[in-house]
Design a protein around this nucleic acid. Structure first.
Ligand SMILES: [Zn+2]
Ligand SMILES: [Zn+2]
Ligand SMILES: [Zn+2]
Ligand SMILES: [Zn+2]
Lengths: 131, 131
DNA sequence: TGGAGTCTGTTATATTATTACATCAATTGC
DNA sequence: GCAATTGATGTAATAATATAACAGACTCCA
């Protein structure tokens, strides 16, 4: 999935996310973009939908929030799983990939004849500086 | 975490979940228990909170739903991670544990000095019979 | 008996996400 | 050029998920 030119709304949302130092909820993004003319949640959700599709943003299911991809260059996401460590104190997120975990999970799924489409690996806890 | 005697509401919620063949949302559980006197979401959420604490129920973050533990005997959950494969067609969930994946993730977290507290591993896709 | 702790019932509210419908702009095919 | 299509946008309304706040009941035990 290559990234086409972003539209105005997509660029605004992406910009907010890249400047944030922790994940943001859709409504937080909305609030940050009121000055730029955003009025309704759908403006955010529609932009996010595309950004997720392009792989430049990730959704953190366990905290209903969104974060800019930490590895925009490597398009590792195409083949591999992505995992997140989320600090419950400072909100900081570490994004990482591990082919070992990846293969192990995939092997198990294959043994069950389960066809994976989307995976979520999120660990909540406390980061080095917060513990 | 040993499981104490369940209270009336906890038992009702647990019973609904064990009889279901796929995960249920809190509000679906509420609807199924209207006849038993349930009127408000909190009655469900409070029971779920305890059942999660006892480890007899799991929460599936990616679909905002709850499922009874498939391995009530092994209290594998105390040490190890739990992963779920969720079929998007039939809703069926396969719960599994893998120490390899577990250790690998834990090693990585330790290398980052990240102290894990709660982990979510959920794979959505299609099960053997649905693909 | 009377706290302390836990469970419960109820109302209201907060947070997250989608449906429905209208408009606008760029693109395509003719 | 012009209809047809496609994709992006704006707006209002609503659905779905989750929590706050407060009051009452119940058990256990000092
Ligand atoms: Zn990424
Ligand atoms: Zn931290
Ligand atoms: Zn389990
Ligand atoms: Zn299935």
């Amino acid at each position: 999935m290559s990234t086409p030119q972003l539209t105005k709304n997509q660029a605004l949302v992406f910009d907010v996310l890249t400047k944030a130092e922790s994940p943001l909820s859709a409504y937080t993004i909305l609030d940050k973009l009121r000055d730029q003319g955003f009025r309704a949640p759908l403006q955010v959700y529609r932009a996010l939908e595309k950004l997720l599709e392009y792989g430049v943003v990730h959704r953190l299911e366990s905290i209903n929030s969104f974060v800019a991809c930490a590895h925009p260059d490597e398009n590792c996401h195409n083949h591999g799983l992505v995992a997140f460590a989320i600090c419950e104190s400072c909100g900081q997120v570490i994004e990482f990939h591990d082919h070992e975990v990846d293969h192990r999970l995939m092997d198990w799924l294959r043994s069950q004849k389960f066809k994976p489409e989307k995976a979520t690996i999120e660990i909540r806890g406390h980061c080095a500086t917060c513990s």
